[in-house]
Design a protein around this nucleic acid. Structure first.
Lengths: 364, 364
DNA sequence: CTGTTAGCGCCTTCAC
DNA sequence: GTGAAGGCGCTAACAG
């Protein structure tokens, strides 16, 4: 059985005593073929275990029925931490599959090693030859390179919030989410001295969140940003940030630490607690994303929920529309975010212990 | 630019005033072409932005340079919890990409909705027409169906620990890992009454862990299994299990709760703590996998580490070897696991606060 | 060195 | 209803 016999349309045609055209018709069901003939052909197909070769179909159809999903995973050379490591792509992928499942297309996935950008572009070029369209998560190539790619194949950006004129873009409403969260800290909890833990500077969504944070604080009299730490979206970044904060001799801690994502918030909470600082009594901490485990920490993490799955689904749908009609004007879509109040911000525990539900939530 | 012009080899050949064969030679670098000619062709290629169509190459080469990565995500209809939800596939994927990166192949990924098995098989059939080989994570099809698939395309099973005669298989040493862990609880911590939280019955790795647990306890005089809960590898399962345990009127809690994976262990810990039970003082809890966040919980989770990334890498390498030589005899490979002692088992805190390192570890 | 030519496996008009 | 034939874009012998 180590043969990997690959039967062709001709094999089937010969065995069934018909022409390849007839077999093709049967395979695709749609044409009129005499029932008896159809029956015979089907039997042969089943017997031989014939499956049409996808590459050959691609050639004939000028369509591969495959879309490419690409993202980056820049790694800190020392620690090998992945950005947004926790099920980021996985969730987006689910969404993409939802959109694709209906029509039976497949997804070619590639996590680029974000090392150097020119390389990323070359990889994308190669991939573009194998797919009908590209979903790029987290803008990774320059606008010009994007334009070049888009010339060859439809492209949609997911979570690449730059105002990209050369592609469709779908992203979460980082602005509203962050604004709502910060206002909550300012107004509901009366926080005055806020510290921010940021993601890497090249992350468009991270930038959007930070800007929203700063502007919201700025327009709130009496409140101030006491500092900012440039992290890499990993738990360790939060820990490092807090460690720095703690190390300042005679330094006063902020009222609240707002983090660019949940992982950094968790790291920050952990480090604060390890140092004997109470969360949220002494310092409140918040995140962004609403990852699966956020609700299971002590205290449960207050955050902003975004649906990565929905992101994938919308991006993919958008791509499919563009593949169907490449002349479509470029569009952009902004997905809703939702403020999730738990206890790390200082809110009281929910009377009903629903904390565990979050572990089971269907985001979006 | 919404044109998606796709230049062909002929376009290049014409523009450069050479034959298609020459262009092909230049593209593949390997043949002798006069430097001047090569130069000219390269210029045209660059100018036109020509990329060889992958489908056409596949036809000519009888090779697609794509491998398929398939797994299941059975969902509880009510809660929509994913099995091993946290970055399971993501890690495996990284490993696969490592193996593939060297040769520039791509990966077609598909997370099947584990609903009904016959459907899974049909999906796999379809996918098999688009790839040169298949890595199936978590056995999802029957042995016969597997044989049928393997007849058409090389297949390797990852983490599908059944003794499958129709494919190569790579999996983690669940047995040794679990045995070491249970012995530790029995011998080092003197635990007597152990409770087990299991994964779904159809998960081969879960079964292996449970069997190892039971046999290890059985051969240890004085120790006993007080019960077992059938979970689904999600945090909520651990919570549900503990809730049941707590609900028994006058019921005595076990000394330790051994869980089939980390997520359930985290859920169990959380639920115990919510009920005022101290971990590990009253009840110790352990997991399996060593997911990224395990070290950040309170107490840090004792677990068994397996490298999902290595799993993906080895499975893929194995597949590539088989693609290169389909006549190879079937092999199976067992990957090492490692006992990770933290505090949830009752061990003292590490003197050096290295807990955060785990968040940055490169598994395997 | 370079061009010609015959497929790869399938789909799809166009005749019968 | 069914078959014959051309072509999708590229590669790999062969000739020159």
């Amino acid at each position: 059985m180590a043969n990997h016999a690959a039967f062709t349309l001709y094999d089937v045609a010969r065995a069934a005593g018909v022409s390849t055209a007839t077999v093709s018709r049967v395979v695709h069901g749609n044409d009129r073929v005499r029932p008896a003939t159809r029956q015979r052909v089907l039997e042969v197909i089943d017997e031989l275990g014939y499956i049409p070769d996808a590459a050959a179909q691609s050639m004939a159809w000028h369509r591969k029925e495959v879309i490419g999903l690409v993202t980056i995973a820049p790694r800190d050379p020392e620690t090998d931490i992945e950005r947004e490591g926790v099920a980021f792509i996985e969730e987006v992928l689910r969404g993409v599959q939802v959109a694709l499942g209906k029509i039976g297309w497949s997804v070619l996935i590639s996590v680029l090693g974000g090392a150097d950008r020119s390389d990323a572009y070359q990889q994308l070029r190669k991939i573009s030859a194998k797919v009908d369209g590209l979903v790029i998560v987290e803008g990774i190539v320059s606008s010009e390179q994007l334009a070049l790619l888009a010339e060859r194949v439809p492209v949609v950006l997911a979570a690449g919030s730059l105002d990209e004129p050369n592609a469709d873009v779908v992203d979460a409403d980082n602005w509203s989410g962050t604004t709502a969260l910060v206002r909550h800290m300012l107004v509901q909890h009366g926080k005055k001295r806020l510290f921010y833990i940021d993601g890497p500077p090249d992350a468009p969504d991270g930038r959007a969140r930070r800007r929203a944070f700063e502007e919201t604080v700025a327009r709130h009299p009496g409140a101030a940003v006491t500092g900012c730490f440039e992290g890499r979206f990993a738990a360790i970044s939060g820990q490092l940030a807090v460690r720095e904060l703690l190390a300042v001799p005679g330094g006063e801690l902020p009222d609240a630490i707002i983090c660019g994502n949940d992982q950094m918030a968790i790291g920050a909470m952990r480090e604060l607690q390890a140092a004997g600082v109470r969360v949220p009594a002494d310092v409140a901490v918040t995140g962004f994303d609403d990852i699966r485990f956020g609700a299971l920490f002590t205290p449960p993490l207050t955050t902003v929920r975004q649906s990565l799955r929905l992101l994938g689904e919308r991006a993919c749908s958008c791509l499919l529309e563009r593949i169907a009609d490449p002349a479509l004007p470029h569009r952009s879509e902004r997905l809703p975010t939702e403020l999730i109040l738990r206890e790390s911000c200082g809110c009281p525990p929910a009377e009903d212990p629903v904390y565990w539900r979050a572990a089971a939530h269907e985001p979006g």
